[in-house]
Amino acid sequence: MGVFPGFGSWINQNSQQPLKAESKRSENVDSEEDDFNYPDKVYYDLKEAQKQADLWHEAEKKHPWHNASPKIKVTHENGFYHMNIELTVGLPPYFLYNFLIDPGSGTFRDLRKRRNLMENKSRKILFENGPRQMMRMEKSVACNVFGVYIPISMNLIVDENRKDLTTQYKKEEVRFMKAFEGNYKVEPIFVDKERLCKKRIPMTQEEYKKCSGGQGKLASKLTIDQYYQPYPPFNLPPLSWFIRGMTIKTSKSLLAQVQDTSIAMRTATPMPEETTSNKHEKL
C-alpha cells in the first residue's frame, strides 16, 4: 500500500532527492521573480508519512471519520475584531500544513463549482533560514457577500515555519482594512490513544507511536487567530456588521474546502508502494 495520489507524488518527488542539512545562516533572497514551488526540504519522516496515509485509508473504509464543524468566536474591543477558529481535520499535521501553505493554493479550489476560493497571484521570497521562510504575497480571496463570491485582493507579509507548523501574517494592503494580521498553527491529535494506549497517556508523537505499536492515526487541530480593524466608515454599524458577517462566511467557505479535501485524500486509492519508496530519514 502507498500514499494518496497527489500528496503521494509530492512525497515521491522529495524522496528522490538527498535531504539537505538545515542551514545555520540566514539567507536574504528578495527575488523579483514569483516563486510558486514547494521548498525542497522536508522536516518530518517520509516513511511515517506514508504509514499514516495507509492507516487513514484503511480506517476510512471501515469507520469513516466525521468532519466536525469549526468553532468560531468573534470578539470586539477597542476597535479591533478578534476571530478565533478551531478546526479538527482528519489528516496528519504535516499533511494539513503543507496544504495550507501550498504555493498553488490547490486546497482552496472548489472543484464542484469550478472556482477558486483563494489563490496566490504573486509570491516573492524575502528571507529563508532552515524551515523558516518569509514571503511577500498577493492573494485573491473570494468573499461571500450575500451568497455571491466577490474577489478581494490582499497583499501580505507571510512568515512560515515548516518545522513548527506555524504561520504568521500581516497586511501590507488589504481592501477595507486599516489593520489585518494573524497567525495559525497545526497540532497533532492522537486519535487512537484510548484504544491502543491503555497503560499510559502519550504526551508526544514518539510516545504515541511506541504505545500504539505504530498503528495509531494522527489527526490535526488547526487554530487560527485573526485580528482586523476596518477603515471608517466600515468600522461603524451597520457596515461593521456586514464586514463581520462577510468575514465569518468567507472563513467557513475556506474551512469547508479544507474538510472536503481531507475527505478526498482519505478515500482516494493508494498509489503502488514502489512509486513512493523512501530511503532517507527526516532532518
Rank of each mutant, 00 (worst) to 15 (best):
M1P: 02
F4D: 09
F7I: 04
G8N: 04
S9N: 10
N12V: 01
Q13K: 05
Q13F: 11
S15I: 07
Q16L: 14
L19Q: 15
L19V: 13
L19D: 13
E22A: 12
R25L: 14
S26E: 14
E27Q: 14
N28F: 15
D30E: 13
P39F: 08
P39G: 05
D40V: 14
D40K: 02
K41Q: 09
V42N: 01
Y43L: 07
Y44G: 12
D45F: 09
D45P: 03
K47P: 00
E48T: 06
A49P: 01
K51V: 01
K51S: 02
D54Q: 07
W56P: 00
H63P: 07
H63Y: 15
P64V: 03
N67E: 08
A68R: 12
S69E: 15
S69T: 14
K73H: 10
K73E: 03
H76E: 04
G79F: 00
H82L: 06
E86W: 12
V89F: 08
F95C: 01
Y97V: 01
F99Q: 07
I101L: 06
G104L: 08
G106Y: 01
F108P: 04
F108Y: 11
D110P: 00
L111S: 01
L111G: 00
R115M: 02
N116S: 02
N120I: 07
K121C: 03
R123K: 07
K124Y: 04
L126S: 06
F127S: 10
P131E: 15
Q133P: 05
M134V: 14
E138W: 03
E138G: 13
V141Q: 06
V145Q: 15
S153E: 12
I157G: 12
V158P: 04
D159R: 11
D159A: 09
L165V: 08
T167Q: 03
T167E: 03
T167K: 04
Q168P: 00
K170A: 04
V174P: 09
R175E: 08
K178M: 00
E181P: 00
K185R: 05
K185S: 05
V191M: 05
L196R: 03
C197W: 12
K198M: 13
R200A: 09
M203N: 14
Q205M: 13
E206I: 12
E207N: 10
K209R: 11
G214N: 07
L218P: 06
L218I: 08
S220L: 09
L222G: 04
T223H: 05
Q226A: 12
Q229M: 05
P230D: 09
Y231H: 13
Y231V: 06
N235G: 02
L236D: 14
S240M: 03
W241A: 12
G245Y: 08
I248V: 13
T250A: 06
T250Q: 07
S251P: 14
L254W: 06
L254D: 12
L255T: 05
T261S: 07
T261M: 08
T261G: 06
R266H: 10
T269S: 10
P270Y: 09
M271V: 03
M271H: 05
T275I: 01
T276Q: 02
H280G: 00
